[in-house]
Amino acid sequence: MLSVSHVSKTFFPGTVNERRALVDVDLHLQEGDFVTVIGSNGAGKSTVLNTIAGRIQQDSGTVTLDGADVSKLKEHQRAAQVGRVFQDPMAGTSPNLTIEENLALADKRGAARGLALGVTRAKRTRFAEALKVLELGLEDRLKTKVGLLSGGQRQALSLLMATFSRPKVLLLDEHTAALDPQRAELVTRLTTKVVQEQQLTTLMVTHNMAQALQVGNRLIMMHEGRIILDVPEQEKAQLTPEDLLSEFAKIKGAALDDKTMLQ
């Protein structure tokens, strides 16, 4: 479904700040795969996501989506098939528009946006129905401006919006990191639910190892722009955070402070 082949990316090449963010990364996701990505800061996790989304243009290599090479497509063109939730709860919604207007925007992903009314009565019913899944009572506040919602509510709404029009690929970039534990738990639960229901091909970056082990059917560990560990479904079930840490230490040949990993 999603293929990242031999992708490399260097930031600020030829300067003292040169940083090799991705080094010959190869990653292939089957349809319905739910892959969690862990790694220390600067490991290249977010760069992989941004390269797939088209926000960052890779120096070499290709990105293939559902059999089509999208390497040359711009961010908004790829977005027709790629849903995203960002780390910042403010990033995924439009604060001055109402909840129903935000959903209307999400509903039109990949479709032509013409001069038909964005929110109609029929759509409103559909939006309210969809919002019930969040169990936050937002279905009764369709005309509330999104800017008035809390971070947790906005992130839950962002997740619903990102998956609303069933994208081919869902990219989650530490989307629970900025939330309090309770809200993070809620958003994680919603994520698992919606990914399972829609059988979405998903790539989720996280700093939380317990979360990385708890959700998804495959786990990837990155370090200094490379994938250093790829755990398939059967092995992942038996893994513990301690295993991951020692695995990391073994591969890198150096003990690692778990604080850097857990952040």
């Binding site: 989304a53 849903g83 992903r109």
Partner: peptide, 19 residues
């Protein structure tokens, strides 16, 4: 609505396939 969102949150509306 896409026009309004462009002025409101550019990153967001681009991630919903709007130029």
């Amino acid at each position: 609505l896409a026009l309004q969102a462009t002025g409101d949150n550019e990153q967001m509306i681009r991630s919903f396939a709007v130029s």
